[in-house]
């Protein structure tokens, strides 16, 4: 069952509740939930819909790696992340991140770290569809080049 996993890619609409349930526990005093949705306007240009594609097996591994990185930084944090793929309409949920920790600071930090890291190392691609065409979007962090070993090291 998809709902019982902490890290997954799915073509179905995302519901944050099961991910929150995955990280809630008696030791936690905070759960930070980040929900990424499809934005209609980017710098004045109207998006009609998005298509996300993933290298699913590797993407799920990389989501799990991000969770482990957060849990290594704050050993009392627990993480769950899901990303949707396929065609998404405006306001659909594309990504859900839930981070629990004993105190709020670590949960905010973990959540922020996760979304930035997703944009670095998780093999998921977004295609924007506009009225006048469509295009695969890349390099959202404006990194000019990756080092030879890939983006595994050096960012946190």
């Amino acid at each position: 069952m998809e709902q019982k996993r902490n890290y997954y890619i799915t073509e179905k609409p995302l519901d944050p509740s099961p991910l929150i349930q995955q990280v809630i526990r008696p030791e936690a005093g905070a759960v930070n939930t980040f929900i990424g949705t499809v934005r209609e306007l980017t710098e004045g240009k109207r998006t009609l819909s998005l298509t996300y594609e993933a290298y699913k097996s590797m993407a799920e591994k990389k989501l799990e790696q991000i969770g482990r990185e957060i849990e290594a930084e704050n050993k009392d944090s627990r993480v769950a992340i899901a990303h949707r793929i396929g065609k998404l309409d405006i306001s659909d949920i594309a990504v859900v991140i839930a981070v629990s920790s004993p105190h709020r600071d670590a949960s905010y930090k973990g959540s922020r770290y996760a979304i930035e890291r997703i944009k670095e190392i998780v093999p998921i691609w977004k295609k924007e569809h506009w009225e006048d065409g469509s295009e695969w979007i890349g390099d959202q962090l404006e990194q000019t080049a990756y080092n030879e070993k890939g983006p595994e090291e050096g960012t946190s």
Partner: peptide
């Protein structure tokens, strides 16, 4: 072997 063009998830 997979080619991974710049990613744009999130």
């Amino acid at each position: 072997v997979a080619f991974i063009p710049p990613v744009s998830g999130g």
